[in-house]
Amino acid sequence: MLTVKDLKVQYGAFVALHGVSLSVTEGQVVSIVGANGAGKTTLINTISGLLRPTAGEISFEGRELARLESHTIASLGIVQVPEGRKLFPDMTVYENLLMGSYSKRAKQYRKESLEMVFHLFPRLEQRTKQLARTLSGGEQQMLAVGRAVMSKPRLMMFDEPSLGLAPLLVQSIFQTIRQLKEAGMTIMLVEQNVRQSLQISDYAYVLETGQIVLEGSGQAVLENEHTRKAYLGI
């Protein structure tokens, strides 16, 4: 569904990604794990069109994305749940969700998407009139996921969804990702929380200083010697 080939991204002279190649298959959860600064967010933001690659290709169902703008990419159904949530703070929960279905394609499904969001997060339904910035951290994360679901995504990219959340909330965000997968969603998950991510992944890539050093099924990467030493402390 999504294929990234030899992607190179630079910030001035600093090379953030040195020729990364990966692919995401429809209906699967693919995770990209790695330490802080490995280039995970850079990768997601380049796919979203917020950053421009210096070389390489990104194709989504045969369509080249690397030259498109963010809003066009979003309207194709590639949606991210950004790191730090990036909500619209002075809008209500309901307005944030409406903004999720801003693009023409998503607007047609607004009603059923809204039902799906409230089914996933009944809490949000009780808070529709509340301003986003007055929500608790966990509720804000729900809203960020809910807003992405409103976009009727074909590919959902999660950027560090567990970052800064209490352990119980981390459990519930992984639970949500599982639920979305069961509903048939294609998911790309970028995480520092290596163990949990690998456990729910069909396929995984390990990213270190801008390069893929290891790939395989979630289980295989989880059992790999290098992963165990470097990320799991075993």
Binding site: S48, G49, L50, E69, S70, H71, A74, S75, V79, Q80, P82, K86, L87, F88, P89, D90, M91, E95, L98, M99, G100, Y102, S103, A106, R147, S151
Partner: peptide, 24 residues
């Protein structure tokens, strides 16, 4: 209105607006 909401969304978080499909 949709356009008005897009204007407010862009004011509050430009990047997030682009990511939901708003042409900034």
């Amino acid at each position: 209105t949709e356009s008005g909401r897009a204007i407010r969304a862009t004011a509050q978080n430009r990047e997030a607006a682009a990511l939901v499909g708003v042409n900034v």
